[in-house]
């Protein structure tokens, strides 16, 4: 397996291969986008331009999968507004324009990380798990949802994870409670070398705190409204331990201690 080549960003017309409903309001869009597939690193995102009336700006979406051999990338998204509704309306053969791959992804120099995610935050972690697995690492996954129905992600992660740990708010699947209910004991016993988290910010803060207590490096992937995705408009500027940074260009993945301080 060769490492993805580092290359500059591109704009690419991507053709829809499949559009599949994964759960209520959640879709997986597979696109033929060889340039993106070749160069994408896990944790990076794309700015998607849907040519639909009423949609102007591009929409930032984390890459959920990237496969060099088939030249395809996949986006997993929840239909929440006009942009994602237009995405959900796309059918095989139709085109969208991708700008990317953008931003800084997750570190690849790990062997046994625990990936912790909730909701759509699991999407970039899936890409991470895939890449790690293909490079011989042994990622494990801890995923949390409100109910069992939200943990449809299990099947997607299964081929790329050494183990999958589950929590639900209502106890309908796995341990009852948030991911942070299970995290301390997992980290204490699992022999992990790092933690990566993506999901609601409150969850990521909780995960980062536990990881820090256990002395494990933790990366988090942040989400902000974006304009350009190129670091120009400053819509997504944040405070960090090293001063002002842009989520689109300097992130979206940051070491937790740089952004949660």
């Amino acid at each position: 397996m060769t490492l993805p080549e580092m290359k500059s960003k591109v704009m690419e017309e991507a053709q829809v291969r499949t559009q599949k409903r994964l759960a209520e309001g959640v879709y997986r869009l597979e696109l033929s986008a060889p340039e993106h597939a070749r160069h994408a690193l896990p944790g990076q995102f794309v700015q998607v331009q849907v040519k639909s009336p009423g949609v102007f700006l591009r929409r930032p979406l984390g890459l959920a999968e990237a496969d060099t051999e088939s030249g395809s990338v996949a986006l997993i998204y929840r239909e929440v507004g006009k942009g994602t509704a237009a995405l959900a309306a796309l059918r095989p053969g139709e085109q969208v324009n991708l700008l990317g791959p953008l931003g800084q992804g997750f570190r690849m120099d790990v062997q046994h990380p625990l990936l912790v995610g909730g909701g759509m935050g699991l999407s970039p972690l899936l890409c991470y798990a895939q890449h790690l697995w293909r490079h011989g690492a042994q990622p494990e996954v801890l995923m949390g949802g409100r109910t069992a129905a939200e943990l449809f992600w299990q099947d997607l992660f299964a081929p790329y994870a050494a183990a999958i740990h589950l929590t639900t708010d209502d106890g309908s699947l796995g341990r009852q409670g948030f991911v942070t209910a299970l995290l301390p004991e997992l980290l204490a016993e699992g022999g992990y070398d790092s933690v990566a988290a993506c999901g609601p910010e409150i969850m990521m803060r909780g995960v980062a705190k536990v990881a820090q207590e256990q002395g494990l490096p933790c990366e988090v992937s942040l989400e902000r409204r974006m304009g350009c995705g190129l670091g120009a408009c400053l819509s997504c500027a944040i405070d960090t331990a090293h001063g002002r940074r842009k989520v689109c260009k300097d992130g979206p993945v940051f070491p937790a201690e740089e952004v949660f301080c």
Partner: peptide
């Protein structure tokens, strides 16, 4: 929030 799409996508 520093940015918002508006005017019916215009």
């Amino acid at each position: 929030v520093r940015i918002a799409e508006t005017a019916g996508g215009a």
